[in-house]
Design a protein around this nucleic acid. Structure first.
Length: 183
DNA sequence: CGCTGGATGGTCT
DNA sequence: GACCATCCAGCGC
């Protein structure tokens, strides 16, 4: 995808807030992301390429899909080699019936595991292009007000403020500690 | 509200 | 054998 190719993971994580994500006819507005960098101890790419994280070292603008806690899948957008952005929450507005059928109990898309279930992300989506037939991303026309905070659910590099949210959005996976918008 | 523990499986030490 | 980029139900306040 031309607009996001080559962007640093932190820059991309910020730019994806407010963007529109669609997967096979379902989707909505991205309201929460996290950045993972190559030299980042919390990143799967930290120790170099492996079979699991191979797509993190593949083309930018493609998906990195991995299984989390043996149960859930998580969806990332590859940034630079070894760097990716985790999509943590969506404000769903398209294909709501599809999503509700896949996830009977709300919330639909508040959390990385929940949104992959609602969007019917599958393990073989790993490596798929976001400008391909199944996935689409359209960046926001204007830069929205962002919330910034530490990443969720990690045990290392907990101090890095690499979690981003859309200010005022309902449906964040968790509140941001910091009350004030970043800009 | 908050906290705790179980589910569940691949990856890495 | 340990460790998770998670979610949910159950319990106590």
């Amino acid at each position: 995808m031309q607009q996001i190719a080559g962007l640093d993971a932190v820059v991309l994580a910020r730019r994806l807030i407010g963007a529109r994500l669609t997967v096979r006819g379902a989707g909505g507005t991205i309201i929460e992301t996290e950045a993972y960098a190559p030299d980042d101890p919390a990143s799967h790419s930290h120790r170099g390429p492996t079979p699991r994280n191979a797509s993190m070292f593949g083309p930018a603008g493609h998906a990195y899909v991995y299984r989390s806690y043996g149960i859930h899948l998580c969806l990332n957008v590859v940034a630079t080699p070894g760097a990716a952005v985790l999509i943590r929450a969506l404000d769903p507005d398209t294909g709501l019936d599809l999503m509700r059928a896949r996830r009977p109990a709300p919330p639909l898309c508040s959390g990385p595991g929940r949104l992959t279930q609602a969007l019917d992300i599958r393990p073989d989506d790993d490596g798929a292009a976001f400008d391909g037939p199944d996935f689409g991303i359209v960046l926001a026309a204007a830069v929205p007000d962002l919330l910034v905070g530490p990443r969720i659910g990690i045990s290392r590099a907990q101090d890095l403020p690499w979690r981003f949210g859309l200010a005022g959005a309902a449906g964040l996976s968790r509140p941001f500690p910091r009350a004030r918008p970043d800009r």
